[in-house]
């Protein structure tokens, strides 16, 4: 699964990713249900589902670059960005990923690719314009940590497991109920009576599998949030200055909320996303957006970085 990794949680994008993810799951579920309904072999369906997930994993870098309109840049085109990535990779002793720039005014960055060797790190032009060099470096350290943690592979496997759990539930229930029904029924006599029952049973099965899908989806999201915190941590340790990453996070969030007042034409273009802040204002309890979000809240991330800063200062 391709995950856009924005720094920090940019709500418009988060909502888009959430909807995309949900649609993907529904798509898989629906697609496989259709295949099964038209009477394909179970094994064959599994092969197709696995092939689709594998394609997503294998082409994650291309899919992400395509959807964000990112283009790969050479060291001559973007010497500063390459210089930062070069140095961070030398510090972390990891192979240098390809570097891309997306021409968007939204300050953002993401990393993708199935393995550290096939990875791409992409920053938007908005990020490069707004943040100073140290902050860009902090954001890239976060993204490189995602690469080092192999987050694309981990999240692909996690979501595969989620889909598989949902599917298996469904198959088991079908097999159990209909198998039992076939064994008991024997003749065709009871057909009129059990017609309504079958519809009910089918609906129940649907409901159970949807619940399983939903739970696995929430778990995947939670996993994603924890991995964001992990990348914050590793990135901050790599540059040795958690406060710079914290400053970059604050700056990007500040810029995000300022966009509508700053440029009306820009606001027009991003209008679709502005409904989200109103929904997430509620502070009491666990808000829905916190459960669905791929990224932890800014407060949570800043708290972690502050703690890290104190620890690093203490050991020195």
């Amino acid at each position: 699964m391709t995950r856009a990794r924005n720094v920090p949680a940019d709500r418009g994008l988060s909502i888009r990713i959430f909807i995309t993810g949900l649609l993907l799951v529904i798509l898989y579920g629906g697609f496989i249900a259709v295949l099964w309904a038209i009477g394909l072999q179970f094994a064959f369906i599994i092969v197709i589902a696995a092939a689709l997930l594998f394609a997503q994993y294998w082409f994650s870098d291309k899919i992400a670059l395509w959807s964000m309109h990112g283009r790969l840049v050479t060291p001559e085109e973007a010497p500063e960005l390459h210089g930062i990535v070069d140095r961070l990779c030398a510090l972390a002793d990891m192979p240098k990923p390809r570097v891309a720039i997306a021409d968007t005014d939204m300050p953002n960055a993401f990393a993708t690719g199935r393995s550290p060797k096939a990875a791409v790190v992409c920053a938007t032009s908005g990020l490069l314009r707004r943040l100073d060099e140290a902050e860009v470096e902090a954001v890239l350290a976060h993204e490189l940590s995602h690469v080092a943690h192999r987050d694309v592979a981990v999240m692909t496997i996690a979501s595969t497991l989620g889909v598989a759990a949902g599917l298996t539930t469904r198959m088991m229930l079908y097999a159990g109920l209909f198998g039992g029904l076939g064994g008991r029924g024997g003749g065709r006599g009871g057909n009129n009576n059990s017609g309504g029952q079958i519809v009910l049973i089918e609906m129940a099965i649907m409901l159970v599998s949807i619940v399983v899908y939903a739970i696995s989806f929430l778990l995947t999201r939670a996993l994603s949030r924890y991995r964001e915190l992990a990348a914050d941590r590793s990135g901050a340790i790599l540059i040795g200055r958690p406060s710079v990453l914290a400053a970059a996070l604050v700056k990007v969030t500040g810029e995000m909320s300022r966009i509508p007042t700053r440029d009306l034409r820009k606001a027009e273009a991003f209008n679709a996303f502005f409904f989200t802040p109103a929904l997430t204002q509620g502070k009491g309890g666990i808000s829905i957006s916190a459960l669905f979000s791929t990224h932890p809240t800014l407060e949570r991330r800043l708290a972690q970085l502050a703690e890290l800063e104190a620890q690093l200062g203490h050991t020195a």
């Binding site: 972390a92 940590s145 943690h149 981990v154 992990a230 990348a231 340790i237 790599l238």
Partner: peptide, 15 residues
């Protein structure tokens, strides 16, 4: 990086 580091999302600073 070991499997556990990947699963737990952490990197050891390289000496």
């Amino acid at each position: 990086m070991g499997l556990f580091d990947t699963l737990l999302g952490r990197t050891k600073p390289v000496a």
